[in-house]
Nucleic acid binder design. Sequence first.
DNA 1: CATCCACCGGAAATAGGGGGGC
DNA 2: GCCCCCCTATTTCCGGTGGATG
Length: 395
Amino acid sequence: MANVFEGMEEGFRIFKNRDALSPHYIPSELPFREREISLLSRKIAPVLSGRKPENIFIYGKTGTGKTAVTKKVLSDLNEYARKKGLPVMGLYVNGRLHDSEYKVLVKVVKLIDPNMDMMGYSISAVNDKLLETVEGKELRLVVAVDEIDTVKRVSDLVYRLNRSNDEISRGSISLIGISNDPTFKDKLDARTRSTLCEVELVFPPYDAEQLRVILTQRAKEAFVEGAVTEDAIALAAAYAAKHSGDARYALLLLLRAGDIAEEEGAERVERIHVEKARKRVEEDIVYDMVSTLPEQHRVLLLALANMVLKKSGISGFSGEPVITSGLLYSVYRKTAEEYGLSPVSDRWFREYLNELQTYGIISVKVAGKGFRGNTRIVELNVDPSKLRSVIEKSL
DNA sequence: CATCCACCGGAAATAGGGGGGC
DNA sequence: GCCCCCCTATTTCCGGTGGATG
């Protein structure tokens, strides 16, 4: 019998290193972010000479390089500190995965020393452990909390970490908060805002030309030489520029175009593959947002998607149907029951709505005139039919 | 203009899961 | 194993809020 792998390398004539296009890949060079990198590192640099850096707030739309820049700067910081033998540590925590003051603290302790797992201990025990460790080792920490807007009761976290500096005689803890929600800063109370936002850094979206350069650079790493045309790259860049300059979208587009070219057995990635990739990328993005959500959130979204598709709602001024929260709640209840789930109370439903809004999947605004009282109108920010198919598959 | 309605969101109460100490 | 502690998710309770209604 012939070797089962016979001829299989044929499939790899498009990609050389597919990972280079993945959203998690951190390239060694970040074009058009030199200014941000140098600003951020300069603001952090005092930590190397034993002073506590100011807290930093980073804001920018998705796919503007906030995470990549932060990770790059932190990893350079760690490398430099290791080389010089300095007790300096840059830590990265994702707020969506660690969405409470408690979870962030536990994660920070675990990042300092992977053997320390404080899960289950009281928050004050975790905090004491953290302070004791920082003081004992004279650690100077820079803690970056990505997607900080998804952390519940952020102000408690910011306040606690900041106050820690007063309670220890040696070492320090500085914060970097990262958010893509433009309203997040306004939602903070004045004291938290002035604490967290001592320094602010805004990341602008990329334009089409910049995206083209970024894609070209990544394509060099990702594709076999000559396996992608400049045309295809330019088109992907143009689409992404329209998509609010989102580099992640651009990379995903090229990745999917490559997949499609490979599936079709094409020699190289051309414009047509980028065109075809668009649909799949839209689904990828919806899937990304939805797949990690709890069941109840998905049911709620399914109910909403169905309502949008059926256009069954209450008519506003202009006569076009709008979906009020109360109406959505009753549809959600029915949907939940259809799937054999017990629906949550209306109070918790409102909490879900707010969470989904911070995730950016839906928008909620007060109805105002034309509607009774504090009624809010819910809008879906993604394609309803794609959302429905993704959720139905997952339930 | 008083009252009603539809919903908002804080606070307290409750259930449950993880963990230590003995 | 039992008891108590802490965090988290969820329910229950309830006092707003602001436009609609008569």
